[in-house]
Design a protein around this nucleic acid. Sequence first.
DNA 1: GTCTATATATTGATAGAC
DNA 2: GTCTATCAATATATAGAC
Lengths: 211, 211
Amino acid sequence: MSEQSETLEKRFMKGFEEAIPDKGTRQILLNAIEVFAKKGLAGTKIKDIAAKAGFSQGFVYNYFKSKDDIFIKIVDLAADGAGNSVQYAAEMQGTPYEKIYWLTEAFLCPDSIAMQHWRLIMLQATTSEAIPEEAVKISKEKIKKPFEHLIPIIIEGQKSGEFVDADAMTLAVTYFSIIQGLGITRMQYGKNIPFPTTDMVLSFLRKNPSM
Amino acid sequence: MSEQSETLEKRFMKGFEEAIPDKGTRQILLNAIEVFAKKGLAGTKIKDIAAKAGFSQGFVYNYFKSKDDIFIKIVDLAADGAGNSVQYAAEMQGTPYEKIYWLTEAFLCPDSIAMQHWRLIMLQATTSEAIPEEAVKISKEKIKKPFEHLIPIIIEGQKSGEFVDADAMTLAVTYFSIIQGLGITRMQYGKNIPFPTTDMVLSFLRKNPSM
DNA sequence: GTCTATATATTGATAGAC
DNA sequence: GTCTATCAATATATAGAC
């Protein structure tokens, strides 16, 4: 499991470095992700980000023209990351269940703190009203991609008889909702809380769950 | 379903009126709940709350001594509300599955916008670092009650053979995580998104799901 | 009771020093 | 390149007017 989710982490970081060539910009973004996730957009002060990145407050403005700008960029990257993860799973070798199993473990891996941070930021972008319009627009647009890649996997599993015959979109919504909820629980209570097995998480999807 | 969840709503409001006898204080709190849920603590300005409640900005300070104070009070009420809901389900007549079925419908009822607002505020209280210490303390303390009331239901269902034989605490964590995730999805996409049936939501819990 | 006006503090963003 | 100093804007909380 850890080997596989390292692959996903690496994939994330590789895409990140390609999208953001400049090292200083990356340094600010990486630190801003964590602060935004923990304090929210309005609760985050430029000083917090700067301090965490090891810069002075004013220096941040050499890289970004505003706090909103940093946030929008992160929402953009996070939305891409979610879509790419599912696409990666869709293109794997294996049965539909194996693909979703792998994806689930990658999403919920307790060592992928970064993944939970991305998700909390996407959560703000989709539930908060105190968010720049462009961030809302981006997240609405890019949220489609995970669904577009997950639904074919679900349909394939239904054809092979592995998965229940409910509406595929409903199952996809359910899947991402459950992932979201469990991811938040991970953030709240950390590593050592009783946590369901991946098989248990996915039992809503399977015709004959093995448990 | 709607009849039953009205009961839960009524229960919420009744407890609320008992806890907050003063009408003006309630008026501010009820409006603050919605604004805090949508904008977060830091993103909410006293002016927003005052405007929504139909007061001037300064007038709010006749009822509360600070913004943090309002937030802390709401966290306290929300945490109680969650615990009371599960307690109410535990004390119902019926099989364990019927109790959890009813609770799930009450939690996820698309007309209970208030319920989703409480949950978003509890989410802030448990994931954000930009939150008054007392709110954190209260939520940590009161989060135990829902578990204390849910676990006996689960164990009862396991004894009767309705539920799977996994660790009861793990099942409870899974249950609340799923509720949390689905509740957020409801907030994000509203009423008209494809949504799982309650039976589907609870299939992780049942030995022989009927679907 | 409720509002208006204001003092005080915080912070986002700029510009100039080193 | 990076920081310090500062301006301008916004918000909290208070206090006094009606």
